[in-house]
């Protein structure tokens, strides 16, 4: 099963994502913010990154940009969790190099469906 990096500053969301993905058999590493995630990403590679957008220290979009600079994350699917469904937000995500997005609120089933979509 996949090795997933989940990034969210909200503990409840982090727990939910982690619990759901682990329940589906994935291995999950969690990070509290973009900076922490980037530090982790520099030491190991993942099959998928799921990140929130609004976070202290380093937001999800700038994390995405930085990850794309790492050779290990050049093609890695990066999913952005966002509450904003507007086209300009999506465009921003894409420009940063995000693979796709998951619009909040979402439930565990939707999360799994989306993860399935990128892990194939």
């Amino acid at each position: 099963m996949a090795n997933i990096l989940a990034v969210d500053d909200s503990a409840s969301m982090r727990q939910m994502v982690e619990f759901t993905l682990k329940g589906a058999g994935h291995t999950v590493t969690s990070a509290n913010d973009g900076q922490q995630a980037l530090d982790i990403a520099k030491t190991k590679s993942f099959d998928l990154v799921i990140t929130d957008v609004n976070m202290p220290n380093k937001d999800g979009l700038s994390l995405t940009r930085d990850l794309r600079q790492l050779s290990a994350f050049k093609f890695t699917p990066i999913l952005v969790l966002t509450t904003e469904a507007g086209p300009e937000k999506k465009q921003e995500g894409r420009a940063a190099g995000a693979t796709g997005w998951l619009i909040k609120p979402f439930n565990p089933d939707q999360l799994l469906a989306t993860v399935k979509k990128v892990l194939g």
């Binding site: 909200s10 409840s12 969301m13 609004n54 202290p56 969790l81 509450t83 909040k104 979402f106």
Partner: peptide
Amino acid sequence: RAAHSIKGGAGTF
């Protein structure tokens, strides 16, 4: 960010 997290979490849960 705090408001945003509450909104997102409340929707999710």
